[in-house]
């Protein structure tokens, strides 16, 4: 799991670079962002109550 977190962090850094250069994101980038947001949500006890 820890390895996955590190790999995702690295992938997100690459996505940030892409976004800075106004390049559109590809499907693989959105998959990374989905996984990152899901892991963050899970770490708060899924899913956080918003209301």
């Amino acid at each position: 799991m820890l390895k996955t977190v590190e790999e995702i962090q690295q992938a997100i850094n690459d996505i940030d670079q892409k976004m800075k250069s106004s390049e559109g994101l590809a499907e693989k980038d959105h998959i990374i962002l989905l996984l990152a947001s899901l892991m963050e949500e899970e770490s708060h006890g899924s899913p956080r109550e918003v209301r």
Partner: peptide, 10 residues
């Protein structure tokens, strides 16, 4: 969806 390896998660 969240596996212990990023490739498998993807």
């Amino acid at each position: 969806l969240i596996q212990d390896n990023l490739d498998r998660s993807k």
